[in-house]
Simulated assay, not measured.
Amino acid sequence: MANTLTKTDFNFPGQKSVYHGKVRDVYDIDNDLMVMVATDRISAFDVILPKGIPGKGQVLNQIAGKFLDATSDIVPNWKLATPDPMVTVGLKCEGFRVEMIIRGYLTGSAWREYQAGVRELCGVKLPEGMKENQKFPEPIITPTTKAEAGHDENISREEIIAQGIVSKEDYEQMEKYTRALFARGSEIASKHGLILVDTKYEFGKRDGKVYLIDEIHTPDSSRYFYADGYQERFEKGEAQRQLSKEFVRQWLIDNGFMGKAGQQVPEMTDEYCQSVADRYIELFEHITGEKFNNESETCSNLAARIQKNVTDYLESRK
């Protein structure tokens, strides 16, 4: 097995604080920049699983970096540089307390709710008679509130504005950016034989301007179907071939784990972790059209490499 980075404890020049997320660790530099380290941790059902996935952090960081660059003409984003395969350094923004989820197809949690009789999601009315994995007449936006801990909660556009979580002007700007980003992501996916099914975007504000922050179009934040065979599978009611983290959730469900109290995470063997790594690499190569060069296979100390690369970059800015 290649090395994995599952914990970080860096001390970068100008470091003010660190936030350890489910997958990313974010270091605040001088209250002006953010150093975002994409670790090899993997989470599902809001639980961090006990083992890391080799190469996963690099996959996420490099896909996000490519899509931030490929969409910078649509919306300003936080990225300044990627000094290490697992790290992005960017502008510190004040994050909005909502995630913008956009869905092009009825699948995943939305399908589970639809199956249970729900016909309105986050204030958006859903047509009757839809089937699993069916394309919506046009993509729908189903925002969630960003919870400090535990599950994010569905919320409507109207509630967000009425509660003052985001101003009407900023929300409308985020909505416009969300639709434009999804259209661009769908166009790029299509060129590589994929369908961008659904995804989430996060936005923040800096100097009065809305920025795209965090990751975009990665297998952790997005779901992709293979375009080839989609229609045939849909018509037969068969499961779609997909590239996303859904296969990990399904494996957990099949082994009796859904993040509920008293449930035990099934054993993650080295073979299983490698199979997950292979799926992440497959998505990287499909969505970018490039070969993945797994740097963790040739580096004996990922933390030392990151400490040096980031420190060198921050020093070069002085």
Rank of each mutant, 00 (worst) to 15 (best):
D69Q: 14
M86L: 03
M36K: 11
N31E: 14
S244E: 13
E271F: 04
I281R: 15
T142G: 03
I101N: 14
F67A: 02
Q242P: 14
R279V: 03
V59L: 07
K308M: 00
N31P: 11
M1D: 06
P13M: 06
K51R: 14
F67G: 06
T199A: 05
G204K: 14
R305V: 03
G256L: 06
E187A: 07
M36T: 11
E148C: 02
A261F: 10
N77Q: 11
T39Q: 05
L60K: 12
D170L: 02
K79R: 15
Q250M: 03
C122G: 01
I102A: 01
D84K: 08
I213V: 15
L314S: 11
Q134W: 01
E246H: 15
P54D: 03
S43I: 07
D220T: 10
I306M: 01
F292P: 15
R279L: 05
T199Y: 12
F182T: 02
G256S: 08
N61D: 00
N301W: 09
S190M: 01
K131V: 00
R317F: 07
E215D: 09
D32H: 13
T218L: 03
T218S: 10
K308T: 01
A110C: 06
G204H: 13
I160Y: 04
S222M: 10
K245M: 08
Y177K: 10
Q250P: 14
E315Y: 12
K191V: 03
D312I: 02
G229V: 00
N11I: 07
F292I: 10
E290M: 12
Q240N: 01
S190E: 10
K16I: 04
K245G: 10
N3I: 03
D312W: 06
L302F: 12
A261Q: 15
L33S: 09
I102V: 04
M174C: 12
N309Q: 13
Y201N: 09
R103L: 01
C299K: 13
T4E: 08
T144N: 08
L194A: 13
I101E: 08
Y19M: 11
A147H: 14
I141H: 06
L5C: 05
Y230D: 00
G95Q: 14
G90W: 12
C122F: 00
E158N: 14
G256E: 10
Q250F: 03
E169C: 00
E172Q: 13
V166I: 02
G95R: 15
F203I: 01
G14M: 03
L181I: 03
S300I: 08
E215M: 04
L106H: 02
E235C: 01
R97T: 04
D278W: 11
L243T: 08
F12Q: 13
R179H: 11
D9P: 14
Q264F: 07
Y230H: 01
R249I: 00
E267F: 05
P139F: 01
E175K: 14
L5A: 07
Y230F: 04
K56G: 03
S190L: 04
F10N: 11
